[in-house]
Design a protein around this nucleic acid. Structure first.
Length: 268
DNA sequence: TACCAGGTAAAAA
DNA sequence: TTTTTACATGGT
């Protein structure tokens, strides 16, 4: 067990709360006050510790994954200073101090998870995704490894339909796995270019591309305005404000603002 | 039973 | 160009 120090505001329980609020899938298990995730065929456990987290095992392969999951790339101090005077974000950033948006460490897993979440409830998406993981992933004991892109590329659309995908989503997902798009190269491109390349794929619209920027690439200006939950959060918290018109209000912290608004809206 | 839920593409208007 | 429709599942 090794310690990973975290500088800046950090609240482990708040940050990992999404895995309890929405339910964790088989590839992101929450158990015994710790989070389990597969990294390169090994299981990593993350738990709270003084001044940061304890991680087992912690090495050059797991370190960047853990940092992503915990959202350590976000500059919360700058965000809090900017948000302090806002009627909604001011109180929210004080109430949820230390909350960091969790970043999905793997681009293929992020996109497939997003496709499963399109249009249906998160609960339905979770059930379908779990059957996908158990059908094509690898059971590592404490957690499952999410199916590799190569494995899904070999799967048939009928097999995905069999675990609950619609025919269209099955087609999208297999085609994505088989496409020649290098997802790791996307990280080098500016926001607009990433969106353009993703939206060019069938089954990936603006909503999915925006969440990819926000929850995988941790881009500060990502603003998933098409998101139903975000639309309701903005409208309810700002008395009818339209989510698209709200964008400039949250510049230059659109991504962190979206996450804090969603958290504030779903937390009584 | 019918409808909605952290969308998307294609058809129709 | 804008609006409508089909889509699979799980919860209410």
């Amino acid at each position: 067990m090794a310690s990973l120090a975290v500088s800046g505001p950090f609240d482990f329980a708040l940050t990992t709360g999404r895995f309890r609020a929405f339910g964790a899938d088989r590839a992101n298990a929450w158990r015994d006050n710790g989070l389990y995730h597969a990294v390169g065929g090994r299981v990593v456990r993350i738990e709270a510790a003084d001044g940061g987290v304890d991680v087992e095992p912690l090495d050059s392969e797991t370190d960047p994954v853990v940092r992503a999951i915990l959202g350590l790339a976000f500059d919360l101090e700058a965000f809090y200073e900017w948000a302090a005077a806002d009627e909604v974000l001011g109180p929210a950033t004080r109430r949820f101090r230390g909350f960091r948006p969790t970043i999905a460490p793997d681009p293929f897993e992020m996109l497939v998870a997003a496709i499963t979440s399109q249009q249906v409830s998160l609960q339905s998406a979770l059930a379908i995704r779990n059957r996908l993981i158990e059908r094509f992933g690898v059971d590592l004991g404490d957690v499952w490894a999410f199916p590799l892109r190569e494995r899904i590329a070999q799967a048939s659309e009928d097999e995905l339909f069999g675990v609950g995908f619609s025919h269209r989503k099955a087609e999208y997902t297999v085609a994505l796995a088989r496409s020649d798009l290098d997802l790791h190269d996307l990280a080098l491109l500016p926001d607009d270019e990433v969106k353009a390349r993703l939206v060019a794929l069938r089954g990936i619209g603006e909503w999915t591309a925006d969440w990819y920027l926000a929850r995988h690439l941790a881009r500060p200006h990502a603003w998933p305005w098409g998101d139903l939950a975000l639309r309701k959060a903005v409208s309810d918290l700002y008395r009818g404000l339209d989510v698209r018109e709200a964008r400039e209000r949250f510049h230059p912290f659109e991504n962190l603002s979206a996450h804090y608004l969603l958290l504030a809206h779903r937390t009584p």
